[in-house]
């Protein structure tokens, strides 16, 4: 049965990267609990446009939890309070009638705010460019299953590869560390024979880029794992540490 709620939103508005931002309060009545959080923001933006006001800028794309584009720090949690979901998978039925919802952008030195709730996450792209790939000699298509891979390794690599690079780990970390992201990207390749070859160089290059971009030092609080919409485990961070330390000790 459809139900509707009245909510108050405290949303961070910031005109440009250098401008000083502030919270602006909006009241929104009769929000259907069947709406997703982003649909609710769309409704708010329609209302703002009809009032000749500037709509709120926020990132979104696929709206089905696979692209990693949506962000938003909602009531103190990245992607809202639910575990294992992205903001686009959050629904208004999770909020109470009359509730005040605080919406903030990701906050981290390496993710500067561009406008309102949108941040620049290109630092993650730079880390990937530093080594998050496999060099392949082009040629004929290899036979399927020519390289045997154990089920355990395949599963764990797949778990790591489910990282969508949204940046929730950095946003929630008290140290602004990108270790969970880098660990997932190093793990997904290091576990498979095709990626294993360049494992040492990759770990060194990606960690060095991560440090250079101003991300913090991991203190193993586990906040990233708890908030990750894809439930990436911090055991991948142990693997990254192992890869990096053995690469350094062997060079």
């Amino acid at each position: 049965m459809e139900k509707s709620i009245n909510i108050t939103l405290k949303i961070w508005r910031q005109a440009s990267p250098k401008a000083k931002g502030e919270f602006v309060t909006y009241k929104l009545d009769k929000v259907s609990t069947d709406n997703s959080f982003l649909e609710m923001l769309d409704i708010l933006n329609e209302k703002l446009i009809s009032e000749r006001k500037e709509p709120i800028v926020f990132d979104h794309d696929c709206r089905e939890g696979i692209c990693g584009m949506c962000s938003l720090f909602i009531n103190g949690h990245p992607h809202g309070m639910d575990a294992g979901t992205t903001t686009c998978q959050l629904h208004m039925r999770r909020f109470k009638d009359g509730e005040t919802i605080t919406v903030e952008p990701w906050r981290s030195k390496a993710f500067p705010v561009l406008k309102d709730l949108r941040v620049d996450r290109s630092a993650f792209d730079k880390i990937i460019q530093a080594g998050g790939y496999v060099n392949v000699n082009t040629g004929g298509t290899p036979d399927g299953n020519a390289i045997p891979i154990s089920k355990l390794a395949a599963d764990e690599a797949m778990d790591a590869a489910s990282c969508i690079g949204c940046g929730a780990c950095v946003a929630t970390c008290k140290n602004g560390s990108a270790m969970l992201f880098v660990a997932a990207k190093v793990s997904q390749l290091a576990l498979l024979p095709q990626g294993r070859v360049e494992g040492a160089a990759r770990a060194k290059a990606m960690v060095s880029k991560m440090d250079e971009l101003g991300f913090g030092n991991c203190t193993n609080t586990g906040a990233c794992e708890a908030e990750c919409p894809k439930n990436i485990s911090i055991s991948h961070i142990a693997r990254l540490n192992r890869e990096f330390l053995s690469a350094k000790l062997n060079s």
């Binding site: 405290k10 931002g21 919270f23 720090f73 009531n75 103190g76 949690h77 309070m81 575990a83 605080t102 903030e104 906050r107 981290s108 030195k109 390496a110 993710f111 500067p112 705010v113 008290k174 140290n175 602004g176 560390s177 101003g214 991300f215 913090g216 030092n217 203190t219 193993n220 609080t221 586990g222 906040a223 794992e225 708890a226 908030e227």
Partner: peptide, 29 residues
């Protein structure tokens, strides 16, 4: 030294509302 760097990596603005999931231990933070 590490705490100083981590503080810097957090950026200038801090969250108005910040909650932790239950699995995050107070001591670790």
């Amino acid at each position: 030294y590490l705490s100083f760097q981590n503080q810097k990596a957090r950026g200038g603005e801090s969250y108005a509302v910040k909650n932790n999931q239950k699995s995050v231990e107070w001591a670790s933070q």
